[in-house]
Amino acid sequence: MPSQVIMRKGIWELKADVIFGIFNALLSIYWITQSLKFPGGTADGVPGAGYFPILVASLLFILSIVLIIQGSQSKIVYFNVKMWSKDIKKMFLMTIFIIVVFFVLWYYTTYIIACLVLTFGLGYTFRLSIKNNIILSVVFSFGTYYVFNNLLQVMLKLR
């Protein structure tokens, strides 16, 4: 179970349940409006392409409203970012940033270069020792390239 904090919510803390409920409510409305455009069912009783999505989206809408009501009454804060230490925030954001950089590099250069940056960057972020980091990056990047590209014939190229 995640480390939840039960406290009074400030304006800066995310009311996660409410936001998740609103997101799902909007999603279900979109689904219903789009489904109404699909062709209808046949004369022998087979429902059309939009029938099931509308049914499911309606159920999701009802549940979202229940969650919004429950969430607005709840004092549990799931994403109390203020309580995350600087290190955690840095690690979290760096992990996402490095994954994005990996994709850019993979697209414009080669898999090995991108993978070396990914593994070394993550190792640096997670504070592995330089020696261990270099060993892990090199072994993982070249090892996976050899296995996937040469043995499994997976073309590790994006373009």
Binding site: D17, F20, P53
Partner: peptide, 26 residues
């Protein structure tokens, strides 16, 4: 409620793609 929502969300996303009966893109 959350368990139900995530399950129904999965059902909703499972409708993405070709319709299983008439192959209409959804």
């Amino acid at each position: 409620v959350k368990g139900l929502i995530i399950g129904v969300m999965g059902l909703l996303f499972s409708t993405i793609g070709l319709d299983p009966m008439f192959s209409i893109p959804r």
